[in-house]
Design a binder for these strands. Structure first.
Length: 211
DNA sequence: GTGAATGTTAACAG
DNA sequence: CCTGTTAACATTCA
């Protein structure tokens, strides 16, 4: 991505929308996505080539295996913060409305849809479904409203916990993701989803299948 | 050396 | 044109 337009500009703000990292300047914003292998380092470098970098009068931002592009408009014009599980503007009523359009899909697909649960990825999907007691292959429209509400609450709660622990340099211990047994000893089943080829982990015993 | 992993999208087939 | 599948990206760790 050309970065000439940033020359001489001050970095005004750093924001996120789900997995998008936004560097905001007066004349535009940069969107960085880390994909599966990406890293962004502040005032640090790796041996391998940077795929994106900005050098300031004092300090630098280095992206490795990232995709960076200039946003075509301001972040507030592009992004809906009401769906971002880590945003203060997250609106569970709004998300509940969006879910009504997804009634025929399985909940595991819907949970990682970035337009509905912005920021939720494979780990959070697996852990949150376990916490809510919902089988990943449940049909979204068949899940009782109270359970949907619980799922949304758990998604926000777990995302915050995950983030807070990371900030402290810790990790949340997984209950099902890449586990063989849940913390209380029930067996964990692993399935590879046919479309995405991603692995889902769940307890047949503790997660109810609504279909 | 092998395989798998916190993700997305362009290209392709039908 | 719409829908679904595959490949590509390219690093790190076990």
């Amino acid at each position: 991505m050309p970065t000439k337009w940033i020359n001489g500009k001050k970095l005004l703000d750093i924001r996120t929308w789900g997995k998008h990292l936004l560097l905001v300047f007066a004349n535009g914003a940069v969107k960085i996505h880390l994909g599966l292998f990406g890293d962004v380092l502040i005032n640090e470098r790796k041996k391998v080539n940077r795929s994106f970098f900005l050098e300031f009068a004092k300090g630098e931002i280095n992206g490795y295996v990232v995709r960076a592009e200039k946003l075509k408009a301001s972040p507030d014009d592009i992004y809906d913060w009401c769906t971002d599980v880590l945003s203060e503007k997250f609106d569970s009523h709004y998300v509940k409305e969006l879910l009504k359009e997804q009634s025929k899909k399985t909940i595991d697909d819907v949970l990682v849809d970035q337009k509905i649960f912005t920021g939720v990825g494979n780990i959070i999907r697996n852990e949150v479904l376990y916490r809510a007691g919902i089988h990943p292959q449940s049909i979204t429209g068949k899940i009782p409203a109270a359970k949907i509400s619980l799922l949304i609450r758990e998604a926000v709660k777990y995302a915050r916990l995950f983030y807070n622990q990371l900030e402290k340099g810790k990790r949340v211990p997984f209950s099902v993701y890449q586990q063989e047994y849940t913390p209380d000893g029930s067996e964990v089943t692993m399935k590879i989803l046919p479309r995405s080829k991603r692995k889902i982990f769940f307890s047949e015993h503790k997660q109810r299948l609504y279909k």
